[in-house]
Design a protein around this nucleic acid. Structure first.
Length: 601
DNA sequence: GTGATGGGCGCC
DNA sequence: AAAAGGCGCCCATCAC
């Protein structure tokens, strides 16, 4: 099992890492280091222009270094704006979070050190307002490094922590993948998702009625509001107010406990149909209506702000724009440019396949080989229908114990004892307050002080039944979290490797015909949101434009679409091998070459 | 007026 | 009896 999973970098010309820091004056301090973090050349201080030239002079070739910097989101956008991409980086901030928490490095100096600036202001989620202002300017924050806080010191601590870990290969892969994710996030934001506002407007108008001033209700929505008012006999009712609505429903004799859609669905009353319609449409208007379009789509591109590592499990989050919640209703507005295509790929039943591989459950892996995994479970005779297979699997991964899912679980456990035992042991660990760890080494947080207090309280001789019930319930909650953590977190790792591999192969695909001129070219194409359409270095070659947990979109000149589809497919196989070596699990994809996103699936 | 909170619902 | 993992965003509401 302990196969070498990855090599970070080969030594070429002795240059392995180039550490980049920004000084308060705006200049860049550049240190060339070997793979132990030891400087091998005198450090240099470069102006922003000189720094750009330096990067573009070493970058396109096979000897490009791994750039080490505090925060990819601070430095990389400015390089992109100058038409410069880099192949590899090491994001100290993201890597710190992983290593600080990982059970694989728990005895390292890094893990044992007192919290410093790398812990305080550096967690991805707290990365508040580095937002849009910094996108096309170098972010010149003053970096007041104390001796223990310097980037060089931090890099060495990170390298030491990895070298001393039980599974250094896995951690190296994780850090490389996480950092590649940071590059991809910056690139996707910079390139943007092709977005046709005219199509979006058409879709909105068809659903809601003609566009009206912000704050007003479009015609169709207003008519639904009127119907709701008359059915509930309340001429002043504001259907946007859950409280008013709740009272009005009660008055109409409907025994509801909330105004949630799924609860309303079960009721028989003439108000229900227009009310559900209203909820659906008002959601569309407020979340992805004209206001959203005006603020997030610029020059035919949607530029979401991805936050790599923004979720404890390692999934990405977004900040503003809600890119990870694009409703199906408006995906038709995502349209490839003329002469271009979208290649939309989705990993089918990713999490159960990840679970099968994590648990080395060959039976479950076999059920998914070359086919829909849920269909495979059915044809193995475990359950009768695909729906049952799906519900049972989700229950196993999310921790359902009752209902249909709970009833089906025993059959799943009999057919796939290894997989189910793994989810159960992760749950038990969480219930005991222990940490669980993903395939590559990301560990779950420990529960907060309140959790431990409740548990301790339940063991107190004076504990009441309520204390015990609360403690048990919180323990089970945390167990469900850790149960899911190993699967969701390992799936996120697979997805990062998948994307990193796609990115690498895409650049190789067109490197010959789109070789950017070295220096000179940089700066000339510097583009802000104000410039039209596609941007260098992405204006002529296939590139990732969207990522959604287990799904990617590549925007590509039509001529390359088939090659892109093959790259995406083989990248999935590579990702599987990187995480799970020779274990025979398939990671199946659905791949579609389309003109707009709504045509996929 | 601003900030925090919770309901509700979109995505995986 | 109901119950499920992870998010972000908008709105109404309420405390300040």
């Amino acid at each position: 099992m302990g196969a070498v999973l990855c090599h970070v970098s080969t030594r070429q010309n002795g240059r392995v890492y180039v550490l980049v820091r920004q000084a308060s004056g705006g200049e860049f301090l550049v240190d060339t280091l070997d793979d132990a973090g030891t400087p091998i050349e005198a450090a240099r201080s470069l102006t922003p222009v000189a720094f750009s030239s330096f990067v573009s002079s070493v970058e396109p070739g096979t000897t490009a270094p791994r750039w080490v910097w505090d925060n990819t989101a601070h430095i990389y956008p400015a390089l992109l704006a100058g038409g410069i991409r880099v192949q590899r980086c090491h994001d100290l901030r993201l890597c710190h979070v992983i290593l600080k928490n990982s059970a694989l490095t728990s005895t390292s100096d890094l893990a044992l050190a007192a919290p410093g600036r790398w812990d305080l202001a550096s967690s991805p989620a707290s990365d508040q307002a580095e937002a849009r202002a910094t996108l096309f300017d170098f972010d010149v924050t003053s970096v007041a490094d104390g001796a223990d806080e310097s980037s060089l010191r931090e890099l060495r601590r990170q390298l030491d922590a990895v070298a001393g870990a039980a599974e250094p290969g896995r951690l190296r892969l994780l850090l490389a993948a996480e950092s590649a994710g940071a590059l991809i996030a910056a690139e996707m934001r910079y390139a943007g998702l092709p977005w046709r506002t005219d199509v979006h407007d058409l879709l909105l108008t068809r659903e809601l009625g003609a566009r009206v001033a912000p704050g007003a209700r479009p015609g169709r929505l207003e008519r639904l509001a009127q119907r709701i008012r008359s059915e509930l006999d309340d001429a002043a009712l504001n259907p946007d107010s859950p409280q008013e609505l709740f009272r009005a429903l009660q008055r109409a004799g409907l025994a509801v406990t909330s105004t949630r859609g799924w609860e309303l669905k079960k009721l028989q009353h003439p108000v229900i149909e227009p009310l559900l319609q209203y909820k659906k449409l008002s959601r569309l208007l407020s979340a992805n209506g004209w206001t959203w379009m005006e603020s997030w789509v610029v020059d035919g591109r949607f530029h979401p702000d991805y936050v790599p590592g923004g979720v404890v499990t390692g999934r990405w989050a977004t900040r503003g724009g809600g890119a990870l919640q694009l409703p199906k209703q408006i995906r038709g507005a995502v349209v490839a440019d003329d002469g271009w295509k979208l290649v939309v790929a989705d990993a089918a039943q990713l999490e159960p396949r990840i679970l099968a591989a994590l648990a080395q459950d060959t039976s479950m892996a076999r059920a998914g080989r070359g086919t829909d995994l849920y269909a495979g479970i059915v044809s193995s005779g475990v359950v009768e229908t695909r729906d049952h297979a799906k519900v049972a699997m989700l229950g196993a991964m999310y921790g359902a114990t009752t209902g249909e899912s709970g009833r089906l679980m025993p059959r799943l456990a009999r057919a796939y004892p290894l997989a189910i035992a793994l989810t159960e042991s992760a749950a038990r660990a969480g219930e005991r307050g222990e940490v669980v760890t993903t395939r590559l080494g990301r560990s779950s947080p420990i529960p907060g002080p309140g959790w431990h207090e409740s548990q301790a309280q339940a063991y107190d001789p004076a504990a009441t039944a309520t204390d015990e019930r609360r403690a048990r319930s919180q323990a089970r909650d945390w167990g469900r979290f850790t149960r899911n953590f190993i699967v969701q977190g390992s799936a996120a790792e697979w997805a990062l490797c998948w994307m990193a591999e796609i990115r690498r192969e895409l650049t190789a695909l067109t490197r010959a015909d789109a070789a950017p001129g070295p220096a000179g070219e940089s700066g000339r194409r510097a583009a802000g949101f104000g410039s039209p359409g596609a941007r260098a270095p992405f204006d002529s070659s296939p590139h990732l434009v969207f990522f959604l947990h287990d799904e990617v979109i590549v925007h590509t000149p039509a001529v390359h679409a088939d090659a892109v589809a093959r790259i995406i497919t083989s990248a999935a196989e590579t990702a599987g091998r990187l995480l799970f070596g020779d274990f025979p699990v398939d990671f199946m994809l659905t791949v579609a070459i389309v003109d707009n996103y709504a045509q996929a699936k």
